[in-house]
């Protein structure tokens, strides 16, 4: 039978293979893997239909998140890009702030890099739990705003937010430092066991701080 592609029998491509092709494909692969991991977490968490912030629930979610990302190879910039993938709502249509934030926190805590910068200023939504359980020796700088529970259960790491945060910043942190350049919400430092929270401007309300120190515009304001 006549081969309809006969004219291309001797085709030799003149196109160069650039490193860009490989880099972009690898990045897409990472985003795909991260999305798949997030999907698994959401699947696990949504078994009970509604997601509440409960201590055990958070711990469980974090554990699952740490488990699902074990096989994924990524770097700090991929985490930032994945935040935008979540935010776009097109590639992943189910952004649930709680699990999404815990997932990002798990990614940060397990990244190879010690210093992570997330430029999140152009995100339409904010993520909760950024900096959750950030261990000693690691730093996370969020350029933009963060949601609730920023730096909660902090374990010695250093969290900086160049914008504002929501409620429960530093809740249950044991050690480390949280710097919030602008405002933060209610219950700041609730159940805080140690470490420091520095807030540049207004604090809407302090929580019941057990230990540690909270500063507002350079002045200590808590524990009361």
């Amino acid at each position: 039978m006549f081969n309809p592609f006969e004219d291309f029998k001797d085709f030799l491509s003149k196109a160069k293979n650039l490193p860009l092709d490989r880099l972009a494909a690898a990045h897409d692969q990472i985003m795909g893997d991260l999305a798949a991991g997030y999907g698994k977490l959401v699947e696990q968490e949504l078994k009970s239909l509604v997601w509440f912030v409960e201590h055990n629930r958070v711990i469980e979610a974090y554990k699952t998140a740490t488990e699902v990302i074990k096989e994924v190879s990524y770097d700090a910039h991929s985490i930032e890009d994945f935040c935008y993938v979540l935010d776009s709502g097109t590639d992943i249509p189910y952004l649930i702030s709680g699990p999404a934030g815990i997932y990002i926190a798990a990614l940060c805590n397990n990244a190879d890099e010690d210093a992570i910068v997330l430029r999140l200023g152009e995100m339409k939504r904010t993520l909760h739990f950024l900096g959750y359980r950030l261990p000693y020796g690691k730093s996370l700088r969020v350029e933009g705003d963060a949601g609730n529970f920023t730096g909660s259960a902090l374990q010695g790491g250093e969290v900086t937010v160049t914008g504002s945060t929501g409620d429960w910043a530093g809740a249950g942190m044991t050690e480390g430092k949280i710097s919030i350049h602008k405002h933060c919400g209610r219950n700041t430092g609730e159940w805080m066991q140690g470490g420091e929270i520095w807030v540049g401007s207004r604090i809407r309300g302090l929580g019941r701080v057990a230990s540690g120190q909270i500063y507002q515009a350079g002045e200590p304001v808590g524990p009361a």
Binding site: N3, P4, F8, K14
Partner: peptide, 15 residues
């Protein structure tokens, strides 16, 4: 280049 490569590839599959 991709379209031509696809056609060239198709030639080989057809063969």
């Amino acid at each position: 280049e991709r379209v031509k490569a696809a056609l060239a590839n198709a030639y080989r599959i057809f063969q």
